[in-house]
Nucleic acid binder design. Structure first.
Length: 585
RNA sequence: CGGGGAAUGGCGCAGAUGGCAGCGCGCACGGUUUGGGACCGUGAGGUCCCGGGUUCAAAUCCCGGUUCCCCGACCA
C-alpha cells in the first residue's frame, strides 16, 4: 500500500478531551475515527490489525476443534441477552420486538436445541465473530469501552462435567496462547460468584475500569465483584444487654466510631437499596435492608446474586423513611414491627460476618441515638445471611491470608461455565448411549476483539507512537523513500517495494513528497515493526537502512539482500513474541 | 440518570466591558528544500451547535433545546 493513497491520514494533534494513550494514538495514527459517543469508524489500518487479531483467535480455536459459524446481529428481543436499559430494542413493521444482540448465549441455545440430539454429537465447540452493541451508561477511553465493538464468542458443549472440564481447560489455554501471540500480558482472574466457575482475562492498566483484587503471596486474583476474603471475626465474648445511647451528629460510621471511641468493626451499619428488576416482570420492586459490619463495604454484585436480582439501585431517603427506617440512625432491631408499614416488600440481608461478631453498635432508629450491644439472632433476624462484603485493599487473601492488593484492568476475555440448570431451563437435552435424556453442558467464552486491539496499543507504544507486535501489525514493513535530487533513491525504493510485495511481505510504502522529518514521524506514529529507508545517504553507505520500531539500532544492508533481510527480521520478531519477550510492560 | 465543563474554518485554540470573525497547524497552487514534523509567496475554506428573545447592532446578553467531554452506578 502506498501511503500517498492510503485512506486515512495522520494527525499532528489529537482531538481535545482524549485521555488514554491508545485512544489518542489510534486517532492520531489514522486507525479510527469517532462517529458518535462510543461509536467508531475503523479505517483500513485498524481493519487490517483487527483481521490479524481475528486470525490469531481463529487459529487457536481451530486448533482445539472450534468451528466458526455466524449468528445474526439482530435477534428476537427475548433472545438478545441484555436486560433493561442496556438493550437496544426496536420493533419491525409487524410490531415484533427485536433487539441488537448483546450476547448470543440464548440464541446459540436455540440452535443447539435443534442440532444436538445425541451423545455422539458431543463434545462440540462453535464460535462466531460479530459486531455487538451495548448501550453503555458511559462509554470512555475510546475503543477500551465503546458501545459497539467486535466480539468473538465461543460456546463449548459437552455431555457431562468431565467433558466440560476438558473443554473449559482447552479454551482457557487457547485464550492464553492467543493473548501471548498478540503480545498482550494478561492475568487470569476468578470471576465466578459463589460456586459458579467463571474467569476473566485482564490486562492490568489504570485506564481499565475493572477492579481486581490480587494476592502477591499466593497468586490469587479475582474480579472484585466476585472476590472473597477472610473476614476478621469478632472476639468471642458474652452477649451484653442492649443499651440506648445519645450519639448526636454521628450519622456516619466514621463519626460514630470516633464519638464512642470504638473500632469500626464493632459497629453494624445499615445500607438500603431497591431491587427493581422484579417490577419489570410485573411484580413489585423490593426494598432491601442490608446490615453489614461498619468496617466493610457492600459488594452490590454479590448482594444481587444473593437476592437473585440483576438490578439494584440505592434507595432514596424518602423510600428509607417510607420503609420505617431513619437515615443515618437506622436499626435492624425492631424492624419486624416496622416492616408492615413499608409500601414495598422488605428483604433483610445480613452479611455473614455480622452473626459472628457479638455486641455491635447499631442505629436506634431515632435521630441522634444508637444501640450498644446488638446481636444477630437475639435482637433481630434476616431473610438472607450471605457473604455480601466487598474485598478491598489490605483485606486478607481467602487462600493464604496475606494482604490483598486492589488494582485495575481491562477485561479482554472471559469464560463462564453455565450451570446444568441453565441447560434445563433452555431445554437443551441429548440422548445418552442407553437412551436416557441428559442436559447438554454449556460454557460460554468471549474475547473483545476491538478492545484487544486497543489494549495492545495501550501496552505497546512510546512517546512517538504505536509499536505493533508483528503478529497484529497492519503491515510488516514501513518502507520510506527519501527522494534525492536525482531521483535515484526513489526509483530504487519503488523497485524494493515491488520486490518485497512479490516476496509476500506486507509493505506500507511512503512515496509521498514529504520532508524526512514528516516521514519518520509518521512511521513512528503508525508503528509498523520494521522501518526500511531508501535514501541517498543510505545508498552512499552501501544500501538501505533497517530499523526496528521497538529499538534504536539501525543497520545498512545491501539492496540485493534487503528482501531476505526483512523476512529474517520479521521472523526474528515473531519468534520473540512467541517466546514471550514482548510481554514485559 | 445524578454532578461538573464545553460547543467558533478539517484539527488545536483566541475572540474583557455587544460594534468588519481571528491565530497556529493542516489543505490547494508556485518556487526553494530533502536523514527527524523545513522555508518563501499566493489562495481556498465559517449556519460562530440549533431555535427563540433583548438591541440600531449578538460569536458575545437572556430563555429553551441538542450534541460532546469529564466524575459516579452498568459492561467484552
Amino acid at each position: 500500500m502506498r501511503l500517498s493513497s492510503l485512506f486515512g491520514v495522520t494527525l499532528r494533534e489529537a482531538p481535545a478531551g482524549v485521555e488514554s494513550a491508545s485512544h489518542q494514538l489510534l486517532l492520531r495514527a489514522g486507525f479510527v475515527r469517532p462517529i458518535g459517543t462510543g461509536l467508531f469508524a475503523y479505517l483500513p489500518l485498524a481493519r487490517r490489525a483487527l483481521v490479524k487479531i481475528e486470525h490469531v483467535l481463529r487459529e487457536e480455536l481451530s486448533a482445539i476443534g472450534g468451528q466458526e459459524m455466524q449468528l445474526p446481529v439482530v435477534l428476537p428481543a427475548e433472545l438478545a441477552g441484555a436486560a433493561g436499559a442496556e438493550a437496544a430494542r426496536f420493533t419491525d413493521r409487524k410490531a415484533r420486538d427485536l433487539a441488537l444482540a448483546a450476547s448470543w448465549e440464548a440464541a446459540i441455545a436455540e440452535v443447539v436445541r435443534s442440532e444436538i440430539r445425541s451423545h455422539r454429537q458431543l463434545p462440540q465447540l462453535v464460535f462466531h465473530v460479530q459486531s455487538q452493541f451495548r448501550d453503555e451508561l458511559r462509554p470512555r477511553a475510546g475503543l477500551l469501552n465503546a458501545r459497539e465493538f467486535t466480539a468473538l464468542q465461543a460456546f463449548a458443549l459437552a455431555a457431562d462435567d468431565a467433558g466440560m472440564q476438558a473443554q473449559y481447560g482447552a479454551l482457557r489455554e487457547a485464550w492464553l496462547r492467543a493473548f501471548r501471540r498478540c503480545a498482550l500480558p494478561v492475568i487470569m482472574v476468578e470471576a465466578g460468584m459463589g460456586d459458579a466457575v467463571a474467569h476473566r482475562f485482564v490486562y492490568l492498566t489504570p485506564e481499565g475500569e475493572d477492579e481486581i483484587v490480587a494476592c502477591d503471596a499466593c497468586g490469587y486474583a479475582a474480579d472484585r465483584r466476585a472476590a472473597t476474603f477472610r473476614k476478621p471475626l469478632g472476639n468471642a465474648e458474652p452477649l451484653r444487654p442492649i443499651e440506648k445511647v445519645a450519639t448526636p451528629d454521628a450519622k456516619t460510621i466514621e463519626a460514630l466510631a470516633r464519638f464512642l471511641a470504638i473500632p469500626r468493626r464493632k459497629t453494624a451499619k445499615a445500607v438500603f437499596l431497591v431491587a427493581t428488576d422484579d417490577a419489570a416482570e410485573g411484580r413489585q420492586a423490593r426494598f432491601v435492608f442490608v446490615v453489614i459490619r461498619g468496617d466493610m463495604e457492600v459488594n452490590t454484585a454479590k448482594l444481587a446474586a444473593a437476592l437473585g436480582t440483576t438490578d439494584l439501585r440505592p434507595a432514596t431517603d424518602d423510600e428509607i423513611r417510607a420503609a420505617g427506617a431513619e437515615p443515618g440512625y437506622a436499626s435492624p432491631v425492631g424492624l419486624a414491627e416496622q416492616i408492615h408499614r413499608s409500601p414495598l416488600p422488605v428483604v433483610v440481608v445480613v452479611d455473614d460476618a455480622v452473626p459472628a461478631s457479638p455486641n455491635l453498635v447499631a442505629g436506634a432508629n431515632v435521630p441522634g441515638y444508637h444501640l450498644l450491644n446488638t446481636n444477630y439472632g437475639r435482637d433481630y433476624t434476616a431473610h438472607i445471611v450471605a457473604d455480601i462484603a466487598a474485598a478491598g485493599e489490605g483485606d486478607a487473601c481467602p487462600r493464604c491470608g496475606a494482604p490483598l492488593r486492589l488494582t485495575q484492568g481491562v477485561a479482554v476475555g472471559r469464560m463462564r461455565w453455565l450451570s446444568a440448570s441453565y441447560a434445563e431451563a433452555m431445554r437443551l437435552a441429548y440422548r445418552t448411549a442407553d437412551g436416557a435424556s441428559r442436559p447438554v453442558m454449556m460454557a460460554s467464552a468471549g474475547v473483545g476483539v476491538s478492545r484487544l486491539l486497543a489494549c495492545i496499543a495501550e501496552a505497546h507504544h512510546d512517546d512517538n507512537g504505536l509499536i505493533w507486535p508483528p503478529s497484529v501489525a497492519p503491515y510488516g514493513v514501513h518502507l520510506v523513500a527519501l527522494a534525492g535530487r536525482d531521483g535515484d533513491a526513489l526509483a530504487k525504493a519503488e523497485a524494493l517495494y515491488r520486490d518485497l510485495q512479490r516476496a509476500g511481505i506486507e509493505v506500507l510504502f511512503d512515496d509521498r513528497a514529504e520532508s524526512p522529518g514528516v516521514k519518520f514521524a509518521d512511521a513512528d506514529l503508525i508503528g509498523l515493526p520494521l522501518r526500511v529507508t531508501v535514501a541517498p545517504k543510505s545508498l552512499a553507505a552501501g544500501g538501505v537502512e533497517f530499523k526496528r520500531r521497538d529499538a534504536e539500532a539501525r543497520e545498512i544492508v545491501p539492496l540485493g539482500d534487503a528482501v531476505e533481510h526483512a523476512r529474517r527480521m520479521l521472523d526474528q520478531m515473531a519468534a520473540e513474541v512467541e517466546a514471550g519477550a514482548w510481554h514485559a510492560l
